[in-house]
Each structure stands twice: as C-alpha cells, then as structure tokens.
Design a protein around this nucleic acid. Structure first.
Lengths: 204, 204
DNA sequence: TTGAAAATACCTATATGTGGGGATGTTTTG
DNA sequence: CAAAACATCCCCACATATAGGTATTTTCAA
C-alpha cells in the first residue's frame, strides 16, 4: 500500500484527485492540506510514502515545505504538481528535494504513474519538461541570497529608497544590486526588473 | 438530465471533476476543452445546459468565450470557475454573461450545487465573494477601451514612448491616459501601474 | 589562508514615470 | 439635442530607475 499526502491550495482539485484515486487499490490518501504549514503537520503525523505538493500556497510555499520535508524525512518522495513550467520553478523544486515534477495541464493519469514511480524511489518528470535544459539554464545565472531578498521587495512595489531603509543599507547599494541582477538575468530597459520580479515572484 | 461542458486549461482538474461528477445520475458531461476556442466548438455542437468556464485559458480567455456563448445561446448558463477573487475579474465575467462564480479553493461540492442551481436558471455565487461589493467597486471605476488597450501594452513592458509610436499618438497622450488610469484604479507611487497591469493581465 | 564572490557605497548622466495644472475636439448616451 | 465621457495634446517639476564607471570590506569555499 502506497500512502500519499496532497498539498494544494485549490480544494476543488484535491476533491477531484480524491475521486480519481479512489479507484486505486494500492494507493491510500492519508491526508491533504491547503497550505504548506498544514502539509508539514500531516507529514509529521502520517509520514506518507509520497507527498504531492503545489508550489504556490498560502502561509508556506511548496519549495520551502519540500525543503523542510526532505530535511526531516529524506526517505519521503516529493512530487511537485503545479502550473509553472518555467525553468526557475522546476529547478528550485528539484533543489529543494523533489524527485518528480508534473504540470497541471497534464491528465491525472500522469500523476498516477508518477505516484507509482516515486514510490519505487525513482524520478518522474512531465514529458513536457526538458530536464537537461532546466539544469543548464538555471545553474549558470542564479541570484545571490541578498539579491533574491531585494528582488522579493521589488516585487512588492517597494522603491529602492524604501528597500534601503528596510535593510538599513544605502540606496546606492540597492542600485548596484539592481544593476547586477539586470545583468545576470539579461534584462534591459526601464522597469524590466520589476516586471520580472512580479512574474517570477512565486519562485521565492 | 443536465448536460454540462467544461473548459479549463488544467487537464488534471478536468479529470478530477469527471471522476467526481460521475456519481451524479442527473448530470452528464457532454464535453470538455482546454481552451476557449475548443469550448466554443463543443458548445455549438452539444448546446449544453451549463458551461463551466475558467478565465485564464490559452487561445481565448474565459471572458471572451463567455461573451460569445451568451451572444449565440443566451439560454445557456455559464458558471465561472477560477482562482481569481479580484472584483475586476468577477465583474468582467458577470458582464460577459456568467450567472455563477465559484473559486477553485472551494470544494467540488460547491460546483455541484452551482450546476444544479444554474440549471434552474438561478444565479450562484461563491460564499467567499461579496457580490454587492463587487458591483459597487467596479461599476464606479472601469477603464475605457483605449485605456485597457494601453494598459495591456504597459503589461508587455512597453514604455510610454513605444506605446505612442505603436498607436501613432503622442507620448503626452499616453502620459495622460496613465494618469487617468492611476486615478481610476486608486494607485499611487512609481510603477504601481505596471505592477497592476502585470498582475491583472488575465483581465484583458 | 588566499582568492573569488558577494555586499557595501559612491559618482555622473540619462530615460522614464508620476503629479499638478490646463486645453480642445469627438463620441457616447440619457 | 445636450451633457458626460473619452481621446487627444501641451506645460512644468520632481521622483525613480537605468547605465556606465570605480572602489572598499566582508564572507565563504578551495
């Protein structure tokens, strides 16, 4: 019997998955949650074989939750199940310790296959993803911890001056970080960085 | 027998709904699609009693699709089923002709209730929504056609000068439109409009 | 421990957006 | 038809971000 926990902020999708997986005799859903923190509670109590985990969730996102799970229970296999196909998102879930990655626009049959595959401690990646491409793309230009911190504040519409005040450093420094990030991310032109920050904000 | 069509770009959710609704004897799913155009094809062929429709979909979004459906088949009841709880999103779906609105973080039981309610030509709104608030908020400050057009270009990171060149009008005019939009949307501060444009881009 | 990366800070200049005001003609609509 | 809404354009001042430099200190890994 494979035990599974599901974390997903859309209850409708959980309900659908429960109905769908009901038919599977060797799979048992031992719990579900609508946010990362609730997922951690379930995982600690039930220690399922496989955890299906969305990225964008309230309270704690799937990346952080996965990191916690893999730290406490390295043997638990985490399957990312999200709408995001961007390399950055995939890379961060894999870095966090996920060993499977499925896109929500794939049929549920794929999730089923992935559950079985992960339960045997193998990896499973959605056919729509190019995993070699992912690791190539994201290993080259990553932002430093400080840069990510600042980018998250930029995504919240904070100005450089506001960020400087928040972090107790000078505005010049923020400007430098902006420049470096623009360079690393190969952006150009006014407000490209803000646009990037907002669009990718789930990734932090 | 209530006939239902589903449009939703996440096949996984459709699969789940199919499993869930299978138990309902008086409901028959006559078709599903992953984009608005495919939905229109199905609706024209099957003319279901109820159409469940996401907003964000490839090729044609749910707002436009709903508008088409209600124009051709005013008797078909459209149920919006999306993750967006923003007043603007709700208002636009209702303007397009939807008579129900459910959030994806609600359980599927709610969708079931909504299908039955809409099939009797009644309205159904998610309990998490405040419909009076919606109509108050969005009836007062809506953007004009031209403003929406410009906002869409802003969301694409175009500068005022670029937009001016594209539309063959002066940059001053774009600046004025920006000002008016900032006023209407009650924004303030640098780049708030760009942020708004990117976050709400599904709405256009 | 030494070198590379990161974080810090400043300079000048330019581009872009915001906020205030005013103006004129067209389109929509009650 | 007349009023309201819309689209167009301009002015000035100011805030903010980008782009090009340079430079010092701290942190971390080989």
């Amino acid at each position: 019997m494979i035990t599974v926990a599901i974390a997903e902020d859309h209850q409708a999708l959980i309900d659908g998955m429960l109905s769908y997986l009901e038919y599977e005799e060797d799979i048992s859903i031992v719990g579900y949650a609508n946010d990362g923190k609730a997922l951690l509670d379930i995982v600690r109590r039930k220690q399922p074989n496989v955890v299906i985990c969305d990225i964008r969730m309230p309270k704690m996102d799937g990346i952080v939750a996965t990191r916690h799970i893999k730290k406490e229970f390295p043997h638990i296999n985490v399957l990312a199940f999200t709408m995001y196909d961007q390399d950055k998102a995939v890379q961060q879930m894999l870095d966090a310790g996920a060993t499977g990655y499925i896109l929500k626009n794939s049929p549920l049959k794929v999730v089923l296959e992935a559950i079985y595959t992960l339960s045997e401690n193998k990896t499973y990646y959605d056919a729509k993803l190019n995993i070699e491409q992912v690791s190539k793309n994201s290993s080259t230009s990553i932002l430093s911890r400080r840069e990510k911190e600042i980018l998250a504040l930029i995504a919240q519409r904070k100005t450089s001056q506001e960020i400087a005040d928040l972090l107790f450093i000078s505005k010049s420094t923020i400007d430098t970080h902006r420049k470096n990030m623009i360079q690393k991310l190969q952006l150009q032109g006014a407000n490209e960085l803000l646009g990037y920050a907002i669009e990718q904000k789930y990734a932090f």
